[in-house]
Amino acid sequence: MGYKHKHDIKDFMWSMFWMTHEVQKADIDQLEDDIKTLIKMTTQKTAGQRKDKMKDISWDNLERIQMNIICGATVLYLTGCLDELRKIVGQRE
């Protein structure tokens, strides 16, 4: 995938996010899954390219996973969930 095409996809995802962010709810389960996937990707011994390692995750998914985490964290911020979390863990606002 070319450089421009990758950035066009990111721009499209981000614009769709901003158009719908007011009606979105924080999806903590999805954010957690994406973070676990990122951890697995970065700690696996291969780049997900070996056919004999079916459980490994291809690094071709890295940008999508990163954007999912960025959008998920942004929704937590925009919906006020981070403020609630701060209260739970006892940090000052």
Rank of each mutant, 00 (worst) to 15 (best):
C81V: 09
R64D: 11
D83A: 10
K45V: 10
G72N: 07
V89W: 05
I70A: 14
Q30L: 13
L38Y: 15
L76D: 07
T37C: 12
W59K: 04
K40W: 13
I65G: 01
R92T: 08
Q44I: 01
D8T: 05
M54W: 00
G90Y: 03
M13L: 15
K53M: 11
D8C: 00
L78G: 03
D29H: 05
I28T: 15
M67L: 14
V75I: 15
S58K: 06
Q30D: 13
K25A: 11
D8W: 01
K25F: 08
E84F: 02
T42A: 07
M41V: 08
H5E: 10
K4W: 02
W18T: 03
V89N: 03
H5P: 00
D33F: 05
R50H: 07
M67Y: 12
K55Q: 03
A47R: 04
I57S: 04
L76E: 15
D52M: 13
K6A: 07
Q44P: 00
R64E: 09
V89D: 03
Q49K: 09
K53A: 05
T43P: 01
Q66S: 10
H5N: 02
G72K: 05
L82K: 10
Q49P: 00
T46Y: 00
T74V: 09
M13G: 01
K4D: 07
R50P: 00
L85C: 06
E32K: 12
M16K: 15
L76N: 14
W14V: 12
I9Y: 12
T20C: 01
I28A: 12
D34Q: 15
I28H: 12
L62S: 05
Q66P: 01
W18P: 00
K87I: 06
L78R: 15
K40M: 12
W14G: 00
M16R: 14
H7N: 14
K36Q: 13
T74H: 09
R92N: 11
K6P: 00
M54V: 04
E63Y: 04
Y77A: 14
